[in-house]
């Protein structure tokens, strides 16, 4: 692939999202011997989505620890290793499998620091992926980020672009807290320019992916791409949408959302996860509490329907927000 220069003078290269993640892992494993990856099918096979491809060759089987199918065992071993000086990155093949490992996430990793009165830190990254769009049906397609945002002690990161994937994974590995790093299965083969060498995107900083003045669309993960597509369509109809990619749900960059809404006076929160109890409610409520007087319309949520993800392609699409849905709702909000 060809290297190019961006405006800021940093060399970039076009990469797939999974390559960008691989680049981050490789960079951190080279930089710090304490970083290791642990997970199912991550060695010769390179991971279910090829994120760890080639790492075995470079770092060997002690730092690329392929495990039996033991979700709580490996996440728990990650917790213990993190407590005692390593910086493990544990791969949970699907976020849908988090239920099997949940005790170690919820009661151990998230709480050790607080519960022990500050005596511990848990620099653990649990890398996983979620989302629908590949016909994997109900047990392999969920968006469960709201579960983790509800647990004090966890950080929750959901990159939408290859560059952010690299920068956020690097920052997550260097972070001293447990991070749930949730990728999207349909983003792995999306491409983008990615800075070469060390690239850090700090946790807790949202990114305005498109400037606009008529309404603010707040989203994360794959729906950010849908929002951008919708914004292009809306522009053709004279509607100028701003698109904010939260990138990290916890910590939340509240100021980025507030300052945008104070300019556009309209908020649409968009996510693939089920609407009921979703993180969109948190954003909408926060804006209602803190910027009510700036709003010209009620905050709206556009999100997944309250159903398990169905199998058939047309059905699968019917239960998560599509580009046309975003265009329609945005127009409703402006009429």
């Amino acid at each position: 692939m060809q290297a190019t220069e961006t405006r800021t003078g940093v060399a970039t290269r076009e990469m797939f999202y999974n390559e960008a993640l691989n680049d981050a892992l490789r960079g951190e494993m080279r930089r710090d011997d304490r970083v290791l990856v642990i997970g199912e099918d991550i060695a010769e096979h390179g991971g279910a989505f090829q994120v760890t491809a080639g790492l075995l060759d470079e770092f060997g089987p002690t730092r690329v620890r392929q495990t039996p199918i033991s979700e709580i065992g490996i996440v728990g071993a990650g917790v213990g290793a993190a407590l005692t000086g390593l910086r493990p990155v544990v791969e949970l093949m699907y976020v849908d499998f988090a239920g099997l490992a949940m005790d170690q996430i919820l009661n151990q990793a998230a709480q050790n620091r607080f519960m022990f009165g500050g005596q511990a830190r848990v620099p653990l990254v649990v890398r996983t992926q979620g989302g629908s769009g590949r016909g994997n049906a109900a047990q392999h397609s969920k968006s469960l980020e709201a579960w983790f945002t509800h647990v004090p002690g966890l950080k929750v990161v959901m990159p939408a672009t290859p560059a952010d994937a690299k920068g956020l994974l690097t920052a997550s590995i260097r972070d001293d807290d447990p991070v749930m790093f949730i990728e999207h299965k349909l983003l792995y083969r999306t491409k983008g320019q990615v800075p070469e060498g060390e690239h850090l995107v700090p946790l807790g900083v949202a990114d305005v992916k498109r400037r606009g003045k008529d309404l603010t669309i707040v989203s994360w993960s794959r729906e950010v791409l849908f929002a951008l597509e919708a914004a292009t369509k809306l522009a053709a109809d004279g509607v100028d949408a701003e698109v904010i990619d939260l990138r990290t749900l916890v910590p939340l960059d509240k100021d980025a959302v507030l300052s945008s809404v104070r300019r556009t006076h309209r908020l649409l929160v968009l996510h693939e996860a089920v609407k009921r109890g979703g993180y969109g409610a948190e954003i909408a409520a926060t804006i209602a509490e803190e910027a009510f007087d700036d709003l010209d319309a009620p905050p709206r949520r556009l999100a997944g329907l309250e159903t398990p993800i169905p199998y058939a392609q047309h059905l699968e699409k019917s239960v998560v927000p599509q580009v046309e849905d975003i265009v329609r709702v945005a127009k409703e909000m402006l009429s």
Partner: peptide
């Protein structure tokens, strides 16, 4: 139990 296992992994 898994946490002790992870500590042993560190060693």
């Amino acid at each position: 139990i898994p946490i002790a296992t992870g500590a042993a992994l560190t060693a």
